[in-house]
């Protein structure tokens, strides 16, 4: 009787504790998701939304990877689905845009929405990006033997010049760009900036890839125009990658090492073989 009671109470306890995780699951708090979306236009190339999803979990910002985001075009209360994208391991994703296929409002402003539908542990989230289409054109000019970058910023729809926008000029580099312009470099009434290019900037085959950037503008997003300028100091390639060196891979062994080592090995082992032959001769006689 007592034994049976013990068994029943043990089973009851086990059932009770077995239910605990599911109870905990029910009261689990959903994490808030932050969506970041930037409109970027590379002149004469492509336009896209640069999207990043993150959440604050255990007081740390964590990238939300592998979630599906919906991109829509909002116009006069109407929502047109443009497509979906899935975030990568860094919680990032790029959504290519075709401006001709998008619809703008009467003020020529595009309104795009990015939304996340939520999961068991993450809340729903959305973000709207608004921008107007603009055009940034850069030219290389010379004045008094000094090279300048002249860039003109225009509204792409109305063709009107845009003033008072900060446009940076920089040289493309492997890790971070080399900024040539001042920190604040506003376009004038003609929508133009002019930045002198210092002498002596090294470039492969003397070519410099110069970027003119309108960065994170409230009205126009990010615009980037690049041009190749053959005005740099040529970089002399000192790499010995293709040469036969002592530090090269085994396929690039210096000839003298091959010859010297080869001769030593052949000479020594040739003599050893000759000595072994003598052993056979001794055995024969």
């Amino acid at each position: 009787m007592i034994l049976r009671r013990h068994i029943i109470s043990t089973l009851a306890m086990a059932l009770f504790f077995a239910g605990m995780p599911s109870l905990a699951g029910q009261s689990q708090e959903k994490h808030r998701v932050r969506l970041k979306a930037d409109y970027i236009k590379q002149m004469d190339a492509r336009s896209y939304l640069d999207i990043k999803a993150s959440a604050r979990i255990n007081k740390q910002t964590v990238a939300i990877s592998g979630v599906e985001l919906l991109v829509i075009n909002e116009i006069d209360g109407e929502e047109i689905e443009l497509g979906k994208l899935t975030t990568d391991q860094k919680g990032e994703g790029v959504f290519a845009l075709d401006l001709n296929a998008l619809k703008a409002d009467s003020l020529h402003t595009y309104s795009l929405g990015v939304s996340f539908m939520g999961t068991d542990s993450l809340r729903r989230a959305s973000r709207t990006v608004q921008f107007k289409d603009a055009a940034l054109k850069a030219y290389l000019i010379t004045r008094d033997s000094v090279y300048y970058i002249e860039a003109v910023l225009k509204d792409a729809v109305t063709d009107s010049l845009i003033s008072e926008q900060n446009v940076k000029v920089q040289v493309q580099r492997l890790f971070a760009p080399l900024v040539l312009s001042d920190e604040i470099n506003l376009t004038d009434d003609t929508g133009t900036i002019l930045v002198a290019i210092p002498e002596g900037i090294p470039g492969v085959d003397s070519r410099l890839t110069i970027e003119t950037v309108l960065e994170d503008s409230d009205d126009y997003g990010t615009l980037k125009a690049t041009l190749d300028a053959p005005i740099g100091v040529p970089i002399i390639d000192e790499s010995t990658y293709d040469e036969r060196t002592l530090w090269g891979p085994r396929g690039k062994t210096p000839i003298f090492i091959l010859l010297f080592t080869g001769l030593l090995v052949v000479g020594t082992w040739g003599t050893i073989l000759y000595l072994i032959r003598i052993l056979f001769k001794i055995a024969k006689h």
């Binding site: 060196t245 002592l246 530090w247 090269g248 891979p249 085994r250 062994t253 210096p254 090492i257 091959l258 080592t261 090995v265």
Partner: peptide, 14 residues
């Protein structure tokens, strides 16, 4: 098999 003749380790192996 993957010997680099520039390496003293290879010379040692020989």
């Amino acid at each position: 098999v993957h010997a680099r003749l520039q390496s003293p380790i290879t010379w040692d192996v020989i």
